[in-house]
Design a binder for these strands. Structure first.
Length: 433
RNA sequence: GGGGGAGUACCAGAGCGGUCAAAUGGGGCAGACUGUAAAUCUGUUGGCGCAGCCUUCGGAGGUUCGAAUCCUUCCUCCCCCA
């Protein structure tokens, strides 16, 4: 094997736990491994990125990655964590999502080459949909005791009195269905390893256990988990005010995507750069060292943001995101904004929320609160607009405004744009047409 | 089948006839300080024509001058016994 996979993940801080013998197996021969992804949307978000990077490294180390779309399991809902009831996806949605996800996965994994370790995409709906209930409980359920299933943390937590939520039989069954996936892949794809987040440990080991009990002791399967990605301040990773950070540029603009990474705290950036970039160890270590001595340069965040953005959106989009960030957060002034030609302006603000407003309304409306709220949709309510203006948090074209400010045509950039800023980081472009 | 408990703002969780747009904590947002960081401090966190008014405390009715608080009923969830 060209590179030691476990060693690679280890220095990157991507190993939480692994079953004994995993490393030996991987050093012995090319091995197939899979991770599961719920096809609940037609795009991946950055919460999926860790799993994907695991597969990416896996492939780079000469092994064969399998991405499993959880069409069947996604309908059930994993009791680990506090998942809500899942909606059943109809088959056409499922297939649509699967296709979209595959395109995104192809940004990272090689599905096309002739190499023996090319990536594969499977969907457990394909082997679960016709599996009858009786057949399943007889063939599979027989091999796992309820006692074993009850001892899993995810189950214990839900059954404990404090949780106060109970657990349906459907959810209880989840680990068995996921365990069967592993068995199926083990038998039909020679897949010997399942990877996932630390919260998946219980589900994965149900699979290894099932394989051992059903197929006998000489059939050994392995588990490897990575730590759940956290933020130093305890918040949820990958969420912003507006929700998930998606890989699909239509859902999260490349600019917003770039900004997400740029805004990481120092502590998080040191962790994330190891996990989410492919930079090698010496590069990363020297970057971290440089950052610690001159933190204000934000070199670490900048590298992290550009590496990940390039990987997901490509060089051209990265350029635009960097330019936009430079203009919006550099020491920009009103004069500088006025100097931008229309094309530049539009490309800079491509990633910024925009709204349209008619010229007539703009000219007629003399109340800035009305203009920005009722017509412009910049604020959710007039109360909010007033409150923020009192707090000196609202700027138009980089200049603070108050409730008394009267809108006029002097505000227009290039005759038709108004740049509204809420606080330091939130921009909104009004297009007057 | 029997018994008990609970549903309050983004979440957790007080309130149990008026002084409640609803304590407190968390989260969010903003300001100061900075490095588009962290920590800290401060303000704010239903809406509006904003010293006033309107809509909110699972749903629908009712009692009352007045209800998140009392009654009826429906829905949902949890726990215990069988």
């Amino acid at each position: 094997m060209p590179k030691n996979f476990v060693e690679e993940l280890r220095w990157r801080g991507m190993i939480h736990d692994l079953t004994p013998g995993t490393e030996e197996q991987l050093n012995k021969e090319m091995t197939a491994a899979y991770v599961g992804i719920d096809p609940t949307a037609d795009s991946l978000h950055i919460g999926h990125l860790v799993s994907i990077m695991m597969l990416k490294h896996f492939q780079l180390c000469g092994h064969k990655p399998i991405a499993l779309i959880g069409g069947a399991t996604g309908m059930i809902g994993d009791p680990s964590g506090k998942s809500q009831e899942r909606n059943l996806l109809d088959e056409s949605t499922l297939r649509h999502n699967q296709e979209c996800l595959k395109k995104q996965l192809a940004l990272f994994l090689d599905f096309e080459s002739d190499a023996s370790n090319k990536a594969e995409l499977v969907n457990n709906y394909d082997w679960m949909k016709d599996y009858g209930f009786l057949a399943f409980i007889r063939d599979i359920g027989k091999h796992i005791t309820v006692n074993y299933m009850m001892s899993k943390d995810s189950v214990k937590k839900r059954l404990s009195a404090e949780s106060g939520s109970g657990m349906s039989f459907t959810e209880f069954t989840y680990q068995l269905v996921q365990g069967y996936d592993f068995l199926h892949l083990f038998q039909h794809h020679s897949c010997k390893l399942q990877m996932g987040g630390a919260d998946q440990w219980g589900n994965i080991t149900t699979g290894t256990e099932l394989i051992r009990r059903k197929l006998g002791h000489e059939n050994e399967a392995f588990a490897l988990t990575c730590p759940l990605i956290t933020k130093a301040d305890g918040g949820k990773f990958g969420k912003t005010e507006t929700g998930n950070v998606w890989l699909d540029p239509a859902k999260t603009t490349p600019y917003a995507f770039y900004q997400f990474w740029l805004n990481c705290s120092d502590e998080d950036a040191e962790k994330y750069i190891r996990i989410f970039t492919l930079l090698d160890r010496t590069t990363i270590e020297s970057l971290i060292e440089a950052h610690r001595s001159e933190p204000h340069l934000r070199q670490l965040q900048k590298t992290l943001a550009s590496e990940v953005t390039r990987m997901v959106h490509g060089e051209a989009e990265l350029q635009k995101a960097e330019d936009a960030s430079q203009i919006l957060f550099g020491k920009g002034t009103t004069e500088m904004l006025r100097k931008l030609d229309e094309a530049t302006l539009l490309s800079v603000f491509a990633g910024v929320p925009q709204s349209q407003i008619s010229k007539e309304i703009f000219q007629a409306e003399k109340d800035i609160v009305e203009l920005l709220t009722t017509h412009g949709g910049v604020f959710a309510s007039k109360s909010e607009a007033r409150r923020l203006m009192k707090e000196n948090a609202v700027s138009v074209n980089k200049e603070k405004v108050s409730e008394q400010t009267r809108p006029d045509s002097q505000m227009l950039l290039n005759g038709k744009y108004v740049l509204v800023q809420k606080g330091k980081k939130h921009y909104h472009l009004l297009v007057v047409a």
